[in-house]
Design a protein around this nucleic acid. Structure first.
Lengths: 129, 129
DNA sequence: ACAGGTGTACTAGGTAGATAGAACACTTGG
DNA sequence: CCAAGTGTTCTATCTACCTAGTACACCTGT
């Protein structure tokens, strides 16, 4: 239910939280009108400082994905699903581009990347079963 | 020839440099016995501080990929190609795993990731031609 | 010998991210 | 009304990373 946070990742925690909700809302949960977990609750759940959650939520609010309702919570906007779907695809594309750039620059072929991805997907499926 | 550095990336510059040489050496250039560009030259080329290059080279030396030769330069070791090939595959795998974890956690299917990767590869090929 | 290139080491300062703790403003339900 | 929950704001501190500048130790070709 709650995002998996890696403190050792070079990606800032607040950004990991932001990305998580973009992906979730793009998928349909939570829907417009529903609320995100409160700043304090999420902070407690993730064992991080509330201010870090505030930081993440401010990013989402700035993008028009949620609106802050004092004394109530952070409400998912009507436009959120559309915005998040676009952003999600953009984010995945950017990551893939980074891998491709780094790999080809280092002399690795795109075909090899494709093969590794297929292997990873199969490994994940096997671990599930 | 020289690595492309993104100062705005969450990945530290010294780590970007480190990754670059791992990929290059895994591919066969430079070879064992050859030298990496000097701390000062690379720093000048990348418009960064020499200390940052030192940091990157220390990582490579710690991994047994290069040996520092005072007054001469940083020499690629005999074991470097083997080490770098392993590390390169590990690094790409880790990146792919991160994307898969984030995406599936957010409700995106692995098949969709595969499709996006194919699109990106094709786009890159088209841009070349 | 020496000049110019190498790696190495050190102190200092700046920024971004995260933490810590406190205080304030608002809404809701009892 | 008021207690408990919400979002908001603030100062302070810590760490990692990068920059800046300097100095030192070493090797090589002339």
């Amino acid at each position: 239910m709650f995002p998996i946070i890696r403190a050792d990742s070079p990606v800032p925690i607040f950004e990991q939280i932001e990305r998580y909700w973009v992906f979730r809302i793009a998928t349909g949960h939570p829907q417009p009108g529903e609320f995100l977990p409160s700043v304090r609750k999420l902070a407690q759940k993730l064992l991080i400082h509330p201010n870090t959650v505030v930081n993440a939520y401010e990013q989402l609010e700035g993008a028009g994905i949620i609106t802050a309702r004092r004394g109530v919570g952070m409400e998912v906007t009507m436009e959120a699903p559309g915005i998040c779907k676009k952003r999600r695809e953009e984010m995945v594309k950017l990551r893939l581009q980074e891998i491709l750039a780094e790999s080809t620059q280092g002399g690795m072929s795109p075909t090899e990347i494709l093969r590794l991805l297929r292997v990873e997907i199969k490994t994940r499926e096997d671990n599930k079963a």
